[in-house]
Write a protein that binds this DNA or RNA. Structure first.
Lengths: 153, 153
DNA sequence: TGAAATCGTACCTTGGTGGTACTGTTTGTA
DNA sequence: TACAAACAGTACCACCAAGGTACGATTTCA
C-alpha cells in the first residue's frame, strides 16, 4: 500500500511537536501525549523506541522526560521512519537480499532497488522542522531533487 | 513500511513479461505463471484483477488467455499498483479523509498529502516497458521530475 | 523514604495479506 | 453435439505483523 505504519506517523507528529521548542527542553511522555492527542501508552512506547534509536534523550526519575538528541533540523523524516520500522524498501527484495527465490532471474528487481533508494533519499532530505509548517518553504526544492541517478547502492 | 503488497509486485512482473511482446499476443494464465515463476492460482487471481481493472483483456474459452489492453508504454507502475490495491497514500489520511480524528488539528497532514501525491506522480511516470530493462534509459529523467510543486490536489 | 517518571517485557486482539479450492461459464474443436 | 480448455466468481483458511494495553522494575529527586 506504500504506507508507513501508524507508529511512524505518530512518531513524526510527536517529534514535530518538540521541534519548535528549545532543544534542551524536557517533555514528559504524558505531556507529549496530550499535545499530540495520543493515548499515553502509545506515545510512551514510541518515545521509548525513539530514545533507544538515539533520536531522543531520556531523563529518568522525577522531573524526567524526553528531549531532542539533536536539533530538529538535523533529523529527517526518513530517520524517524527508519528508526521505528527498519530499512525503507518498496519491495521486500529492495533491502533484504535472499528473501525471494526468483531473485536471480527477476527482471524488475534492480529497478525497485533504485526507486526505493530514491524515495529514501527524498525522505532523508525533509527535516522534521519542515513537517509541522503548513506551507514548508524548502520542502519543494528538497523533494524535487529526487533522482535515481543518485540511487547507486 | 512503505512497501507495496506482494500482489502488486507479482502483477508488475507478470505484466513486464508481456510488455516485450506484440500487444495482440494472447497468453494463458498457465504460461504467464510458468514464465514468472509464480504458482498458477496466484497468477490467475492477479491476472483476473488486472483484467477487471481494464489493464488486460481476457479471452475466454479454448485458446483463450490474456492480452494487454493497451501498449506497455502506456501503462505505468502507478497504474498497476492502484489497480491492485487502490489509491496510493503514504498515510491513511492522505487519501481517506475522515479516517483520523486528529485531522483538523494535525500539523503534518498537509505535508503527507503532498509527499504522497509526489510519489504517486513519480510512479505514474515509469512505464511498464522500462521496468524489465536492466538499465532503463528514461527512468532516471522520469523520476527526477518528482516535485511536490505539482502535487496540488 | 516516597513520589514521579522512564524502562523492559509480555500479552492480547484484529485485520490484512498470501495462498488454496471449488464450482460455474464461455468457447473452440473433434 | 459433446468434450475439453480456459477464464470468472466466490468462498475459505492460516499466518503474521501491527495496534494497543498492562504491569512490575528501576532510577532520580525532593
Amino acid at each position: 500500500m506504500i504506507r508507513i505504519t501508524r507508529q511512524s506517523d505518530y512518531g513524526i507528529v510527536l517529534l514535530s511537536q518538540m521541534a519548535g521548542r528549545p532543544i534542551e527542553e524536557v517533555l514528559t511522555a504524558k505531556d507529549a501525549a496530550k499535545r499530540s492527542g495520543l493515548p499515553l501508552p502509545m506515545a510512551s512506547k514510541i518515545l521509548k523506541a525513539l530514545a533507544r534509536e538515539g533520536l531522543l534523550v531520556s531523563h529518568r526519575g522525577m522531573r524526567g522526560g524526553y528531549s531532542l538528541a539533536v536539533a530538529a533540523a538535523e533529523i529527517s523524516v526518513g530517520d524517524v521512519i527508519e528508526a521505528l520500522e527498519g530499512p525503507i524498501g518498496i519491495t521486500e527484495c529492495s533491502y533484504n537480499p535472499g528473501a525471494c527465490e526468483q531473485e536471480g532471474s527477476c527482471p524488475v528487481r534492480s529497478n525497485w532497488r533504485r526507486i526505493s533508494v530514491a524515495v529514501r533519499n527524498a525522505l532523508d532530505k525533509i527535516p522534521l522542522s519542515e513537517m509541522s509548517s503548513p506551507l514548508p518553504p524548502a520542502l519543494n526544492s528538497q523533494l524535487s531533487t529526487l533522482n535515481v541517478l543518485e540511487a547507486r547502492t
